[in-house]
Design a protein around this nucleic acid. Sequence first.
DNA 1: AAAGGCAGTGTAAGCGCTTACATTACAACC
DNA 2: GGTTGTAATGTAAGCGCTTACACTGCCTTT
Lengths: 342, 342
Amino acid sequence: MRSNGTTPTIDDVAKLAEVSTATVSRCLNTPDSVAKTTRKKVFRAVETLGYTPNFGARVMAAQRTFTIGAIIPTMVNAIFARGIQAFQETLHTRGYTLLVSSHAYCPQMEKEQIRTLVGRGADGVLLIGYERDPQLYKYLEQQGVPALIAWAYAPHINMPAIGFHNRAGMEMLANHVIAQGHRRIAYISGVTQGNDRAAERLAGLQDALRSHGLPIKALHVAETSFKVENGETEMHRIMQTAAPPTVVMCGNDVLAAGALRAARARGLEVPRDVSITGFDDIELARVVTPPLTTVHLPHSEMGKQAATALIDMIEGGPYPAPRALPISVEIRASLGPVPQQE
Amino acid sequence: MRSNGTTPTIDDVAKLAEVSTATVSRCLNTPDSVAKTTRKKVFRAVETLGYTPNFGARVMAAQRTFTIGAIIPTMVNAIFARGIQAFQETLHTRGYTLLVSSHAYCPQMEKEQIRTLVGRGADGVLLIGYERDPQLYKYLEQQGVPALIAWAYAPHINMPAIGFHNRAGMEMLANHVIAQGHRRIAYISGVTQGNDRAAERLAGLQDALRSHGLPIKALHVAETSFKVENGETEMHRIMQTAAPPTVVMCGNDVLAAGALRAARARGLEVPRDVSITGFDDIELARVVTPPLTTVHLPHSEMGKQAATALIDMIEGGPYPAPRALPISVEIRASLGPVPQQE
DNA sequence: AAAGGCAGTGTAAGCGCTTACATTACAACC
DNA sequence: GGTTGTAATGTAAGCGCTTACACTGCCTTT
């Protein structure tokens, strides 16, 4: 046990303070268990040497990292940014650090990244949505790593989750749309395969149609990944059909922004000629012209609650039941009444 | 408490593969130094057991964490998202993990987070811009943690950096603006205090004015933080002055999006009544109406190069000289010629 | 006065891995 | 055959910390 003169170790502190390493460790971790005079000596030594505990050693010995991993589909469009930011801030106040990685909606990469994070000793992980290889859940359980699902909500799945009732949200929005007289509806969906949020939103739309006695068959559904350009492409495709819809609903705001751009390019005025709706209410929704009618999700609040819930799980609390945060339809100018007979 | 006896360790792998732990370790770290047949046996054992090396132990033994920290101002608006995503992806391919934290442009929080990341054994850190307490640089050097500055470029500062010549970029853009006949120019700047990117952009604009013999005094400058609403507020304020400008240039696209919204609210058509420009060329710029004339920054490329450079620094390579990536003016519809005499 | 309790401290055994050094096996040379 | 060199593998010493357990005084209690 000797230090090579570089960074001070706990041994150096112990020597300088004339106590054992155990006492130094206790001063740092459970100060109450050390006599006041001893504590003072130790802290003085810590100060003098500029000692910082070695993280790796601490992890090894304590089997805890105070690190939480979040595996999100993407950082690029701001869908998750606000929620993750709030998550991180709350984590920080509780002394945890966040490790974020993104996988571009690739299940294989997601799997890999979950394993990496767990391997790095993440004390818990935040996952987006439910849908993934069940083996992964087994793996997490086996490793004793608590996982919290976010952004989604499925009361029948027995797994801690904090999210939004995507299906109900889209149904609410669709009700508004239908109330405006729209009957020829198209939907630009995100990829539903492996993405329960996207699937639920589509299902919500179908619920609304059904409850109004409208034929589901007539609903034109395009499916594409969440990118502005894709929304644009699909919008073009949709509008050049024989009987174009009077409203194009989109799986999220990003797609809707693309749809909006395509509409403009085609010389269509929104909502006079065609209405467009989004979902998520990210900043984008209020910045495009016209601003998007969309479903507002309380992202920051969810991030905060997710952080609290996950830490509680890690620290031995009971696993919470799935919880959905209240969401609301945000009516803005991109949705109008069905156009008069042209 | 993780290891409930289930998690396989390197010993388990060694036993199953009938080799020593050293060989297992070598297979994982320097596969070339192991005979092919042995390697195969080991990997089969790894597969069978679902073994993942314990991070803490690895850190301890190797004195390396394979973790890189990025401390960014914010995750909320997408300014850094694309660059960080590319950074992360490149890091990932090289076996490193990214730890991101954001500090909402608060120097105190930034300091704290740098310390946290270093305390966690980050092998290197990515910092945005140059301007911060010099003590921090001393601290990093003392701790032996390489730091790379990104998003900014100051050739005279002797510090590894990969970024953009913000000043030159804004000058180029301003030249375009001036070439369109604009003389009454207003500028909505980000907060320049502690943000060299914002300061440089303003300086670039002033350079352009100067080189055209235009009075710098006449430039109306508003300073506010990078938020859509702030761009909006400032735009309103600017346009209700006695002699409103014919063009409002903005410190970034986010502010410009706000300015655009305000213009619309005031019944001004862009660019017929007033032109607006941005900076960054984030997705937002092409989504708003009209799309923003802005300065295009190759975010992804920068993220990639930053990752490579930082890893090279960590792995003992020479510290690179500051490097600026080529940027270009992106002309879109939000900039038009100066309006005719009203 | 003896016994028991307890706060405060020390001792030392790991945590799971990497790697310097030691060892082995075998081919290539004299 | 003996020597040497080399590639492949094994052995075991830590890396810096936490914590179970042991110990020491000293204060109560009986």
